[in-house]
Design a binder for these strands. Structure first.
Lengths: 228, 228
DNA sequence: GTGATGCTTCGATGCACATCGAACTAAATG
DNA sequence: CATTTAGTTCGATGTGCATCGAAGCATCAC
């Protein structure tokens, strides 16, 4: 008679398999990937991958877009990315053996976390804005000040666009490698797009880490007041 | 050579088992429970429970305190609770069949989410403070105003105590049944303790839902400016 | 058309693990 | 001391499921 709360174990079970968790973390790069690309990431055969992808679709963790003979998979939404990121945080804490953060220095330096910038640069961005009084930071609690708002407007941000759906403008998000806040939400997404628009950096083939050009890096740091 | 990121699948695997997930959600009530109590919650024999608890301890999701011949288990920290809550949100979205929120009306009305108040009353509290200009709310983004700070100081909150460790004073937290923000963090915890201190309510036997006395409910609503 | 590529379905194999019964230790009770 | 209650360890059982080989469909390329 008493009805169940939503079943955590089903979704956790979907993430629990090593192959599937590799697929999911690969997709945290935000880019849509094809089944074969994911098969390589997961390190299993295409048949096995196909079965996994079917399960993930069925469990509403992924969405798919068909294009010719390719199928492009993506995380279904920000909620999914949030859960994965939180799991990464938890895992990083539980395994202190593994030196905090990825061995791959590129990933550690700058990477995409679903749709915004993470890694050392992401944290530096956050700190710089905070120390310039554009963000107010109380622990994990963050708010964009009037000054900050004005600054982003001057860069071309249209905040009216943001308000429409319920996503927060500038949500702080705990970074698993740095264990520090960085800027997520709508504004975080805007910054990432801005970086790519200006050609300051491009996303690597491994789909998560980002490489800045030399010029791009200095331009980025100047634009957002990051001091070395 | 390239070294792994922390392994999500291990932790997800711990949550993936139905018995273990029942144990974990039971512990989201914040109270420490004994092995046999958890055995009842999980609906498996004590032997099986013992094995599960060992795994959860090994995986750093739980911590245990021995007292006489009893063992009291609780979630190891806020990070664990956050992951569980986010998984609940995700599950609630993925299963729209299940009417949003628990069938049990008590759970839906007021419950403990690890160490703070959730459910309808939690959301009402949050909204009331927001509309009284004590909180500033931008989507999921929240800040305590000076006015709000002064108010809580007048109730006896010592904010200096809070600043010590890194936990946020007043973090907003997405509620899985209401899909709305409620007040978590240090301040959320303080409010919950305040409610129990004043004997406005007591925690039910099922360890998650809360029952207010009639007088307690009105006192609570008046104290925190909640209008009907 | 033929051939190649991307993805899926089917079936067989094998392993990991949740479960419980039975027997055990440890602590409280008297 | 003996008895009950709390929790554990061990071993046997069974099942769910990830994996891959082989074969089947599409779609593109020529």
């Amino acid at each position: 008679m008493e009805m169940m709360e939503p079943d955590i174990s089903m979704i956790a079970g979907l993430i629990a398999d090593p192959a599937r968790s590799k697929i999911l973390t690969a997709l945290m790069g935000g880019k849509a990937l094809t089944a074969t690309e994911l098969s390589l990431e997961a390190d299993v055969t295409p048949q096995t991958t196909s079965s996994h992808l079917a399960k993930l679709l069925d469990g509403e963790l992924l969405q798919v877009r068909k294009q010719g003979r390719h199928k492009y998979f993506q995380l279904k939404g920000p909620h999914v990315a949030i859960v994965l990121e939180q799991l990464l945080v938890l895992s990083a804490i539980s395994t202190p053996k593994t030196t905090t953060g990825p061995k791959d220095p590129r990933l550690k330096h700058a990477r995409v976390c679903y749709d915004h910038l993470a890694g050392e640069l992401g944290v530096q961005l956050y700190d710089a804005l905070a120390s310039a009084d554009m963000l107010e930071d109380f622990g994990e609690l963050t708010r964009l000040t009037e000054k900050g708002k004005a600054y982003f407007v001057s860069l071309g941000v249209d905040f009216k666009q943001f308000k429409k759906n319920s996503r927060p403008v500038c949500k702080s998000c705990l970074d698993w490698s740095e264990r520090r806040n960085h800027m997520a939400g709508h504004l975080g997404n805007w910054v990432l797009n801005y970086i790519f628009e200006k050609n300051w950096a491009k996303q690597d083939l491994d789909a998560r880490s980002i490489t800045f050009t030399n010029k791009g890096l200095t331009a980025f740091k100047r634009a957002f007041l990051i001091e070395d």
